[in-house]
């Protein structure tokens, strides 16, 4: 996001739409996971794309990995 007051109006509208979408999606997803949804949602309303990137990196990806590990552990147990 560059600081340009000369940006056309439609660009502002697009930016606002992107931010609103990002914030809303982060809020919903984080609420479903029970992880600081207000923080992610509100921060997601202010800048792009850092919140999404960090959210994926810090919340979604580790959870995904942990789930895979649990499944692997379960398989191990069954095999024994």
């Amino acid at each position: 996001m560059k600081e340009q007051s000369s940006m056309p109006l439609w660009a502002w509208a697009v930016l606002a739409a992107v931010l609103m979408t990002q914030g809303a999606l982060l809020f919903r997803d984080a609420r479903a996971r029970g992880r600081w949804h207000w923080f992610w949602g509100l921060w997601g309303m202010t800048t792009f794309p850092l919140p999404t990137v960090l959210y994926l990196l810090l919340v979604v990806f580790p959870e995904h990995r942990r789930k895979r590990k649990e499944i692997a552990e379960k398989d191990e147990k069954i095999r024994k």
């Binding site: 479903a32 996971r33 029970g34 789930k67 649990e70 499944i71 552990e73 379960k74």
Partner: peptide
């Protein structure tokens, strides 16, 4: 009930 969807069988 509220968390039902997050039960993953682990």
């Amino acid at each position: 009930m509220e968390k039902m969807t997050s039960y993953n069988g682990s």
